[in-house]
């Protein structure tokens, strides 16, 4: 087990964290999706939450955004213990979330989705100003969306993801949680989102980013929090840790399918460089 955690070198440890979870537990029937999770996010800090499929990352996100109530544990926001009873409570606190499944209404247009639940002037919708703001947000993300007046159903997966990210920026949030925000994005849009995350950090927001892409994680994160089978499995300083160490924590062993594959490929490359056959039959069979 590689659970040797190293704390970050930032000054974040001294100030009270913006968001702090202690002992959060969540079960679905017989499945312990989260057991005793601790997590801290400081102002101006990007925390990457990583873990294998089914590790509990999205469940943790849903607990933070008020979609699921935790069975045990406490959530503190700006030093106060809070109850995030429902999504409205999370939004009121200033926790904005981009969900893995995006949670958009396909029958509404882009503007309708961006401002859903936070419409301007609810007695007489101010469509003009909402449309202008929508364009500004989308341009900020280099969105390639031809018009904001078509239903979401007409958009591609990446366009939808951009809309979901743009929505989280509305209404001055303090913490932004992004559940695999770049999974469906093109090269330019992924770079935009990474830039955006850095801008959010500069503005002093706390960011929780979930990603399976170690390059992205190492590019923007300050700390890496690893979940494994619903438990904390190490916290690393993103700048001082090797990808191998993170992967070892994710999979729970330093000898894992990822390292074996890499060794095999490295070996193959070495052999090819030496002018010998790339693989033996034995290795192919494996």
């Amino acid at each position: 087990m590689t659970t040797t955690a190293s704390t970050t070198g930032n000054d974040t440890a001294t100030s009270t964290p913006l968001l702090s979870l202690r002992g959060v537990t969540k079960t679905f029937g017989a499945v312990n999706a989260l057991t005793d999770i601790d997590l801290d996010v400081a102002r101006g800090e990007v925390v990457a939450l990583v873990g294998d499929n089914g590790a509990g990352k999205s469940t943790l996100v849903k607990v933070l955004s008020g979609v699921h109530a935790p069975d045990a544990g406490t959530i503190s926001f700006e030093g106060r213990e809070v109850q995030v009873a429902d999504p409205a409570a999370a939004i009121d606190l200033g926790i904005a979330t981009v969900f893995q499944d995006l949670a958009l209404c396909e029958n509404l247009d882009v503007v309708g989705n961006l401002f859903l639940g936070q419409e301007r002037n609810r007695a007489r919708l101010d469509e003009v100003s909402m449309e202008v703001t929508s364009w500004e947000l989308l341009q900020q993300l280099s969105a390639k969306i031809p018009t904001v007046r078509i239903p979401i159903a007409s958009l591609s997966g990446g366009q939808r993801q951009t809309v979901a990210i743009a929505r989280s920026l509305l209404g001055d949030p303090k913490v932004i949680i992004l559940d695999e925000p770049t999974a469906a994005l093109g090269v330019a849009q992924t770079a935009e989102v990474l830039d955006l995350i850095e801008r959010l950090r500069q503005r002093g927001l706390g960011v929780i980013m979930i990603s399976h892409n170690m390059e992205d994680v190492r590019a923007v994160a300050d700390r890496v929090v690893v979940l494994r089978l619903g438990r904390n499995n190490g916290v690393f300083d993103a700048h001082g840790v090797s990808t191998e160490t993170i992967i070892a924590a994710i999979t729970g062993a330093s000898d894992n399918v990822v390292t074996r594959r890499r060794e095999r490929l490295d070996g193959a490359a070495g052999e090819a460089a030496a002018g010998r056959p790339a693989t033996t039959d034995e290795e192919v069979a494996r």
């Binding site: 429902d86 939004i91 949670a103 396909e106 509404l108 639940g117 419409e119 919708l125």
Partner: peptide, 23 residues
């Protein structure tokens, strides 16, 4: 033209998305 109507449509389109937007 009202937020109420927008919410009606949202709930009819995708209840879970409507709930998660704080409606």
């Amino acid at each position: 033209r009202t937020g109420w109507g927008r919410s009606l449509l949202a709930v009819g389109g995708n209840v879970e998305a409507a709930r998660r937007s704080g409606i």
